[in-house]
Design a protein around this nucleic acid. Structure first.
Lengths: 198, 198
DNA sequence: TGCCACATGACAGCCACTGCCACATGACAC
DNA sequence: GTGTCATGTGGCAGTGGCTGTCATGTGGCA
């Protein structure tokens, strides 16, 4: 990697960090792009070359975690049983939470206080879920049914949501491993009451 | 209902219609609020009193359909079995599709061409799903587990998504009843491969 | 060292959205 | 009908997110 790319990567990270700090300190809505750019020591035009929207500055942190989870899934060989591959996803999430607990708590506080950010988060989860469904379909040989893949992906996303939600609402005190274990156990004890076909 | 409220309701509808027509004719991004306000014969300031954001002008149509579906669920007595209540939701969606086929197709074309609208739609589905999970939890006496409610709501939302997706991607030619029947049948033939608890 | 590609940042401008205020118009009492 | 009040309406100025464009500066490479 050349000196140029390295500097850009550093700048990219610094911008996100600066934005994050400002959001925590004075809230998302009350922070302007100009302030972030000033704190990150770049022009506003440059900032927009790194992050397309203000929302992206917040969402990028969650995106990084979800990207890692997707990579963990793709790292599993296609021959491995699907539940095992999905377990790798959950494992990646556990690891992400463990490695960024403080930041995650602050992050979810920002999301909580800023209703306008919910859409961006929902969209991110939606895209990720869609992507996972595609990959599941590919693993199954491309001949599997779409609904099965969609439901499986949705369930996985749901586990992640519930785990993160439980963990954060507890203030991050509980052990993530305990929460996921309990959540996954619940998954096996209950069945979804699907409505009957007309 | 007084003369005043009636006029406001008419205005409200007329604004959404005008916006919809413009979006179809020249695209979402290329339509300004001023144009919509002019077409609806109101001031821009007034328009914002009816719809908080430009996005809301599009999303409101989907929202109406989801609202009806939620009402159909709530109309079921608490004593009715859950699958039956959920079936009422699907039924409501079927009905909505049948009664607004032309508009729905145009609507989803707008969503397709405008990537920026995806977030609003995802957020809407997210809120609805969350609400449904709450109501399921309430039906079960409030003592049920959160994950079960969340998964059930997610599955229901998934069925709706898949049905609508299948129907629209077919150009609205197929019979909605056939699609839902096949979708619900699939739900019973496959089980989700939940990962094992750690 | 000179050239090129490209990252940067300043400036002007668009447009979604908001606060504020004057005005008009239903609703209601008399 | 008429006065009065509550409330819907719309204009105007302003904020801030975001974009196109262009001159400038800097790393990369011959």
């Amino acid at each position: 990697m050349g000196l140029r790319e390295a500097k850009m990567e550093r700048t990219r990270r610094f911008i996100a960090e600066s934005a994050f700090d400002l959001f925590v300190a004075q809230g998302y809505d009350d922070t302007t792009i100009e302030q972030i750019a000033a704190a990150a020591e770049v022009g506003t035009r440059t900032l927009y070359r790194y992050y397309a929207t203000k929302e992206a500055l917040v969402v990028s942190f969650v995106q990084n975690g979800l990207d890692a989870a997707m990579e963990a899934f793709l790292a599993q060989p296609d021959e491995a049983p699907l539940p095992e591959a999905l377990h790798a996803v959950i494992g990646s999430v556990e690891q992400t939470i463990g490695a960024n607990s403080a930041r995650l708590l602050a992050l979810y506080e920002i999301f909580d206080k800023t209703t306008g950010l919910r859409a961006g988060l929902a969209d991110l989860c939606w895209s990720w879920r869609r992507r996972l469904a595609q990959e599941i379909l590919r693993r199954e040989g491309g001949t599997g049914d779409v609904l099965f893949a969609a439901l499986t992906a949705a369930s996985t996303m749901n586990v992640i949501e519930v785990v993160v939600q439980t963990w954060t609402s507890d203030g991050g005190r509980a052990d993530v491993a305990d929460i996921t274990r309990e959540t996954l156990e619940l998954l096996h004890t209950k069945t979804i009451p699907f409505p009957a076909a007309g």
